[in-house]
Design a binder for these strands. Structure first.
Lengths: 120, 120
DNA sequence: ATAAAAAGTACGCGTAATGCGTAAAATGGT
DNA sequence: ACCATTTTACGCATTACGCGTACTTTTTAT
């Protein structure tokens, strides 16, 4: 159980380790340990992190693939993270996408964003 | 954070501590410690417990009030058509995709397939 | 281009707390 | 009352958490 989603969540918000740790009220090295996999959060820290990132502990632990928190009022909202959907079958024009194609797309988006960031 | 729901969940299934611990693959005294509050489960144990009781880690931690697991191999969608997903919010690395980006990708895939068809 | 600042990574250490076995208290059935 | 099962509690060895700190890499400013 490697909590690889933490890094994705944090970078999605464009936060630094320091800033994230500050918001959680823990040391930078501590939070960094969670992301690197050298340390694991306590249950309290886990809940704080889920709150901070507006998601669920199940998502952070990799038990579910959608990052929306469980709202107690039922909701049909969906926000899906493509880098998580290794299992999911996506298609275009009825023809399913290979993993490679999805990877290419993800790489494409990342490259595009990097360029956009540089230019601003 | 006292995990008081564990006892309720277990008794709801009319299981003994011993039986529950056995199913989790941990010592009885260890699991008992979780219920009494003297010990706290590791993240792995937490996930195992959620699986065993068919619920979510969020529920066990008291972060949500309904005990149903978050089902997300959403029975309905095992194959998703990207050209239909105007409503769905997709993201990469936590940043949501714009419609334009998705359109670009669809165009990219179509072009790629056309080339492949020509070449064969 | 260079320096300064910030971000990210890794290590060591003290302390806290896990997980286990064992055993005592409590509960339940006959 | 007795026995079996369940539940609760204790002690101990080991793990590893959380922190500071130092080092490397990357970004920003001059």
């Amino acid at each position: 159980m490697i909590l690889t989603r933490l890094t994705t969540l944090r970078k999605g918000k464009k936060w630094s380790l320091q800033y994230t740790a500050d918001r959680l009220g823990i040391a930078k090295s501590t939070y960094a340990g969670y992301e690197s996999g050298h340390r694991r959060p306590s249950l309290e820290a886990l809940a704080l992190i889920a709150d901070l990132f507006d998601t669920s502990t199940d998502y952070i632990l990799g038990r579910v693939d959608h990052q929306d928190p469980q709202l107690d009022e039922d909701s049909s909202v969906t926000c899906m993270e493509l880098t998580d959907l290794s299992a999911l079958n996506l298609s275009v024009d009825g023809l399913s996408l290979s993993k490679e194609e999805l990877q290419q797309f993800i790489a494409f988006i990342r490259a595009k964003r990097q360029l956009e960031d540089k230019s601003t």
